[in-house]
């Protein structure tokens, strides 16, 4: 690793000794680079460079094997006339909006569990369970629940004498059905963030609020929520990212169907790029670039907040 950073002084007389002393003199300036080098190299190869490569590929038409052909902005023009792209984009918006329900729901569960009764610790960790489980398993469970022939939804409908709907087979319901499944682990995640936040709420302020006659909703809104702001911020960030990253559930439950109606950008990109009918790397990269641009808005906001905190903090 040393050779990567230290300029070669080999060839000069007493090179080894001078090199050592040169290192000694510049140790404090060099050391952070040495510590960072392995992580930076790995991260540059597998994360940073691929982002730019993807954007670059989006200007080409390429099947991954043959020669790539420069097409300029044509992939993006094609997106403008692609109904499946619009369906996916629309579904991403639905995901973003409805997934946000996990934040207040997680807060509600956290408030419900924030007591000190016997066994509450076990309750808290059992409520957290859905988050630890793979989304593949969550998807399988819910796909089975929604099955109109022998799923629980079908049985409930039949109990009321109605013909059960096929949630995952109906273009009108399918996205909502998948989002509902996704909310289950996401609520658990938000709950644990809020439970930790509630743990750190200052008891003095709560007491002061009580003396001022604040109770219930007013207390929650004016005293508790302002103190939970960091928890809310993280909960919103992870929920937005979770919504935009939704892939596993769709791959397991519907593969984007029926007729592409439950597609989202993340899955549509995968479908296009690694399609059975030939790879379309260029077009897939264009979709990925759009998704990345949307995510960049949130990433920038997050970094801006962090930067502000860093400046104030230390």
């Amino acid at each position: 690793m040393t050779d990567v950073v230290v300029p070669p002084i080999a060839g000069s007389p007493a090179g080894a000794r001078r090199r050592r002393s040169w290192y000694r003199r510049n140790r404090i300036a060099l050391a952070p680079w040495l510590f960072l080098a392995p992580a930076l190299i790995m991260f540059a190869i597998y994360v940073v460079a691929p982002i730019f490569q993807s954007i670059w590929i989006s200007f080409y038409e390429w099947d991954g094997l043959g020669e790539a052909e420069w097409v300029g902005l044509r992939n993006y023009e094609d997106l403008l006339y692609d109904d499946r792209f619009y369906t996916s984009l629309k579904n991403n918006v639905i995901w973003l909006v409805l997934y946000m329900a996990a934040v207040p729901a997680g807060l509600a569960v956290a408030l419900f569990l924030n007591q000190t009764v016997a066994g509450i610790r076990v309750y808290k960790s059992l409520f957290f369970f859905p988050f630890v489980i793979s989304q593949v398993v969550v998807g399988l469970i819910f796909a089975w629940f929604y099955n109109p022939n022998f799923g629980i939804v079908g049985q409930v409908w039949e109990f009321f004498g109605a013909r059960p709907p096929s949630i995952l087979g109906d273009e009108r319901y399918v996205t909502y059905g998948i989002i509902f499944a996704g909310l289950w682990p996401q609520i658990a995640y938000c709950m644990i963030l809020y439970l930790t936040g509630l743990n750190n709420v200052s008891p003095d302020q709560v007491e002061a609020g009580r003396l001022d006659g604040a109770r219930g909703w007013r207390m929650l809104w004016h005293v508790i929520l302002p103190q939970l702001r960091p928890a809310t911020f993280i909960a919103v960030v992870v929920t937005v990212i979770g919504a935009l990253r939704s892939f596993d559930l769709i791959a397991i439950m519907t593969q984007g169907g029926p007729y592409g109606s439950s597609n989202v950008l993340a899955y549509y990109m995968y479908e296009v790029a690694l399609s059975e009918y030939g790879f379309r790397y260029g077009y897939g990269s264009a979709i990925a670039t759009v998704l990345f641009t949307i995510m960049l808005v949130y990433i920038s906001y997050f970094l801006w907040r962090m930067w502000r905190d860093e400046r104030e903090g230390r």
């Binding site: 991260f43 691929p50 993807s54 990925a288």
Partner: peptide, 14 residues
């Protein structure tokens, strides 16, 4: 931090 948040699809092909 930023790299940690990017969508997987932008990395997939490269």
């Amino acid at each position: 931090v930023a790299g940690n948040f990017v969508p997987f699809q932008i990395l997939m092909i490269p």
